[in-house]
């Protein structure tokens, strides 16, 4: 019989509520709380060999210690699979379930399953690192959640290949598998378009990432005295690409002193961008980073001063998370340097 360890918090263990949230990790070689119902659902497929209990407050405030202690208890029980929760819409419990499930999967190499309400912050943090069964926002949905966990756990333990997340009943992990479809991409795209035009439901095969919007910053009040910075994702770098910025899927940006430079030419700068035809950019990088005319306008007094540092990266195949990280870091530097505005060029 396959062995399952169950992780729950102090509340579902019957120890107490918020007043006992500082409960340190403990192991019981028995079914506790929702484990009773889970064991019934798993009957014939697996047996719950023990329960790890930890207070949500303790896990959240002493995460490193809690994680290490819980992992040790789980490892000692030699499970084939870990179930954590369900956490419903409890934020700290969701964090703890996601964290211990992700850690156990990574450290012990066994499948781990938890269940959460789709808005639980644990979903965004851990959906790529463990299997999260979507469930209701409160314990009223316990029965259904346990059924969903048990069905997925049974499949994972059997070693059968998993189908798409929506059919297997978990929140997708961002994993795409290749297979031969009976219809070509063109046919499928046209079918989707027709459905969209008819106002019918359709399912995209490639979800767009969700982007945030922010309120616009206040305008520049005094252009004649403003310092303006140049930033680009067009892959323009000093000749030879000294910092080895990737030609695509960049994980870094470069910053270069242009205070002594009036013009980007084929002799001092080049484009390494792997996502567009670089013929024009390499003949004259100003067509991507408008340094020459910025200098001219600076001399004419149209604006105050060109910021001496130019920031650059490659914006093709670059992960949104990296682009946002570059933006934060560059933004901090511009702020500290007292820059008033920036012009960002993209290809």
């Amino acid at each position: 019989m396959k062995r399952v360890v169950h992780y729950i918090n102090q509340f579902y263990a019957g120890i107490g509520g918020e007043d006992k949230a500082d409960q340190t990790p403990l192991f019981k070689a028995e079914l506790v709380g929702p484990g009773v119902g889970l064991a019934k659902e798993l009957e014939g497929k697996a047996e719950i060999v023990g329960t790890v209990i930890c207070g949500d407050g303790y896990y959240g405030e002493h995460t490193d210690e809690a994680r290490a202690a819980c992992l040790k208890m789980i490892q000692d029980a030699k499970p084939d699979l870990l179930v954590a929760g369900p956490a419903f819409n409890a934020g700290r419990y969701g964090f703890a379930c996601g964290d211990i499930a992700a850690t156990t999967a990574a450290e012990l190499g066994i499948p781990t399953v938890t269940a959460m309400y789709h808005e639980n912050p644990g979903v965004e943090l851990y959906s790529k690192k463990t299997y999260i069964v979507p469930c209701a926002d409160s314990a009223r949905g316990m029965g259904k959640a346990l059924k969903g966990i048990a069905a997925l756990a049974g499949k994972l333990l059997s070693g059968e290949k998993l189908g798409p997340a929506r059919l297997e009943g978990y929140i997708h992990r961002g994993i795409r598998k290749n297979f031969i479809h009976e219809k070509s991409g063109a046919e499928r795209a046209v079918e989707m378009l027709l459905k969209k035009l008819r106002g019918e439901e359709f399912r995209t095969e490639y979800e767009m990432p969700k982007f945030n919007k922010i309120p616009p910053a206040a305008p520049v009040k005094d252009l004649k005295h403003a310092t303006i910075a140049l930033v680009s994702s067009g892959g323009v770098v000093p000749l030879g690409n000294p910092d080895h910025i990737r030609v695509s899927s960049a994980e870094s940006f470069g910053k270069y002193d242009i205070s002594a430079l009036d013009d980007m030419t084929a002799q001092n700068y080049e484009s390494v961008h792997g996502g567009y035809d670089r013929v024009w950019a390499n003949e004259d990088p100003d067509v991507v980073v408008p340094l020459d005319v910025m200098r001219q306008l600076e001399k004419e007094g149209v604006y105050g001063k060109l910021h001496p540092i130019f920031y650059t990266t490659t914006g093709t195949g670059t992960a949104v998370a990296f682009a946002e990280k570059f933006g934060k870091e560059i933004g901090e530097e511009l702020k500290n340097a007292g820059v008033d505005a920036a012009i960002l060029t993209s290809t």
Binding site: N212, I214, E324, G327, I330, L334, K335
Partner: peptide
């Protein structure tokens, strides 16, 4: 990147 620079620096970023 544009949005995050604007957000972090609190300055207008024209793309």
């Amino acid at each position: 990147m544009t949005r995050e620079i604007e957000n972090a620096a609190g300055i207008p970023v024209v793309q």
